[in-house]
Design a protein around this nucleic acid. Sequence first.
DNA 1: TACATTTCCGAAAACCTTTTCAGTTTTTCG
DNA 2: CGAAAAACTGAAAAGGTTTTCGGAAATGTA
Lengths: 329, 329
Amino acid sequence: MQRIATISDVAHLAGVSVATASKALNGKDQVRAETRQRVLEAAEQLSFKPNPAARSLLGGPTRTVGLLTSDSVGRFGIPVMLGAEDAFGAGEMAVLLCDARGDSIREQHYIRTLLARRVDGIIVVGESTDSRPSISRDLGVPVVYAYGPSDDPGDVSFVPDDLEGSRTAIKHLVTLGRRRIAHVTGLATYQAARERAEGAAAALADAGLEPGPVFWGQWSQRWGRQAAAMVLHADPEIDAVFCGSDQIAAGFVEAARERGRRIPEDIAVVGYDNWEVLAAESRPPLTTIDPNLEVLGRTAAQHLFAAIDGRATPGVHRMPVQLVIRDST
Amino acid sequence: MQRIATISDVAHLAGVSVATASKALNGKDQVRAETRQRVLEAAEQLSFKPNPAARSLLGGPTRTVGLLTSDSVGRFGIPVMLGAEDAFGAGEMAVLLCDARGDSIREQHYIRTLLARRVDGIIVVGESTDSRPSISRDLGVPVVYAYGPSDDPGDVSFVPDDLEGSRTAIKHLVTLGRRRIAHVTGLATYQAARERAEGAAAALADAGLEPGPVFWGQWSQRWGRQAAAMVLHADPEIDAVFCGSDQIAAGFVEAARERGRRIPEDIAVVGYDNWEVLAAESRPPLTTIDPNLEVLGRTAAQHLFAAIDGRATPGVHRMPVQLVIRDST
DNA sequence: TACATTTCCGAAAACCTTTTCAGTTTTTCG
DNA sequence: CGAAAAACTGAAAAGGTTTTCGGAAATGTA
């Protein structure tokens, strides 16, 4: 492996000065076309890449962004992260990964490290849709929040539109002719649970239907199974269930099937999250709401670009979600 | 937000020259203890952090490593990645994240980008334990492979010890008194499937038992269910099944239960991977082999450190895995 | 006191790129 | 052809840090 070429090697090979070489390579218009060509060829030949350290020393952008995640479990944060990385990586941005493990001391440490490295911006990925403390104040670089929004409405946040998602789910069930629709979901301490319940209630009202029973519990398959017993016992008229997550839905259909209910003939079931390993492998495969997390991450990254360019878009942006129809409805 | 402090600010505040300040901060022994103290206090007061760009411009290390993943699905690569990030982040290393999406063109592009940024080393995270083409040749920086080993035995690779893992699983079943043990696993094109089958066969031989039937299929719950029918039909004497993944095991126990078999009384089941959402939520919860992916990632990162220091440890290192006992055995 | 050592400090160079500004060459126009 | 304008080129500086090396101060020795 040979020494890495610098711009003066290029200039020398092309027979021009360093300054001219720089201008040629950066598309400045103070250099003759023919000279530029020579420089570009020399650069190609030496496979020259400018040293980012020297570049950023000049005070220009570092073309580096920080990706700060708090998602110890990884189910939601990671697709967002990959979507963001995708959007950045396609350009010439580099992504510095920091996993704070939900520890605010670590988070502070990472923020200082990122600032010391002069990142152009930071994207903060939450582990739930609950809002989190803002880190943007006095930071000096733009910040975008993905999945978990900032508690400061002046910040830029992107969250999946759970209200719309649950409306879509209920509408789908209503279209199929279901009239008595229960909702089984997770802990009410989660914003996601509250919003999904709220959206479901609103959609039922829109359709002129009575609000169905709502069962709050855990985000687990176990709770889905327990809830199945409760739901079937509580009201035999129920012909559809909207579940707050695919885990709950998977548990529900399993237990309901064991009790002799046919899915979807007797009871139609809609899940949430489109967690492939559960939704597609369940029996029957689950109709569910896909929160499009990669798109969300990618969008957040694009808006961070914009913010770096000074075109910030404050507020909490609700990103569209998608109904994925499988065999449970 | 105030201007970021430079070392000359620190030097000025401490009443010394820039050179002395640098030496004091970096623990060089050419500075009086009292002077050093003054400098350190000044640095603290200004919350000075050295500019990494300026530092690496000198040709020293950039304290940056690349993390190159090809794991589009994320099940295995991501814990490894987080483990690695953990080991790096605890020090003062920064991690540049690159997700090549299994595309070798993208991979090449990222490698060039990482080299241009003068990373001190690269860690390559595979998406399966199958070996992958080496990228180390003529790269100029050390590379460590995690999960998916390099095809060049001169490289440094870390993989979970599937041979030992499957031996452990079988030994566990034998200890419980099971004598007729089937193996249901994924596609034989996967190294993981082959090694797990091999380890299982060896352990059976060690225990003086006949080799049990082996069923090759997919890595899916569906295949686990199908296999249950085949296993139960093929040999009613079978009293235990070792599955090549938790997905398969989850499908197997579900289907076996439906056919009236009690787990673990009639048939004991061991899974593989300790994928919490499946293994812990299955009925009954699955005994399984945990490949300790975060530890693997952390270890790989530590060895990358060593390699950067010139103390490389070539070869494919098999990392210990762990038996997690739940209710299916 | 004179000299030799040791200890400590600071000036300056080096790392690589971009940008500014002044100087030089070429072109255009009368 | 001569002069003005335009086009092009290169020297130098800046950015923050580390390192080297020479010099100054303090200490030890004769």
